[in-house]
């Protein structure tokens, strides 16, 4: 699953939110809290479900953030967030997810789409359609 949003703002403004592991509850609807300890992040969903994650990539130069959910629900998971500078005062944020069982990719991808859609309000910027 892959979802994206184009925003009229500097890419670093988006990266400051999506690339900071502890800021997840600010932009991801349904994440009540998260704890970051080294390369481990544990989120607590609104449903009361703890979801441990391993942070794989936090690269501010590439503006790439990658993580794996290590909950036993998942046989395999990889999510990647990229923030691209489009060079016209806009940027493109892309969230992609692979998961096994595959149905979980739909669920995470659907939640990611809602999270991306929340960014304009959070950042006070306009989406570009």
């Amino acid at each position: 699953m892959r979802h994206s949003i184009r925003l009229r703002c500097a890419p670093d403004a988006v990266w400051d939110v999506v690339g900071t592991p502890g800021r997840l509850p600010e932009w991801w609807l349904g994440v009540e809290s998260c704890e970051v300890d080294g390369d481990t992040r544990t989120i607590m969903t609104r449903a009361g479900l703890p979801m441990p994650e391993r942070l794989l990539t936090v690269d501010p130069d590439l503006r790439r953030f990658q993580y794996r959910i290590t909950s036993p629900l998942f046989v395999e998971h990889l999510s990647t967030i990229d923030v691209h500078d489009l060079g016209d005062d806009t940027c493109l944020t892309v969230y992609s997810v692979d998961a096994e069982p595959a149905v979980l990719a739909l669920v995470i991808g659907g939640a990611a789409r809602a999270a991306l859609a929340h960014l304009p309000e959070l950042l006070g910027v306009e989406p570009v359609h």
């Binding site: 609807l29 449903a47 979801m51 739909l106």
Partner: peptide, 14 residues
């Protein structure tokens, strides 16, 4: 709204 909703994003579930 969908049932698979670990984040309780959907009010119908939440």
């Amino acid at each position: 709204e969908p049932y698979f909703d670990p984040f309780l994003r959907f009010e119908e579930n939440a």
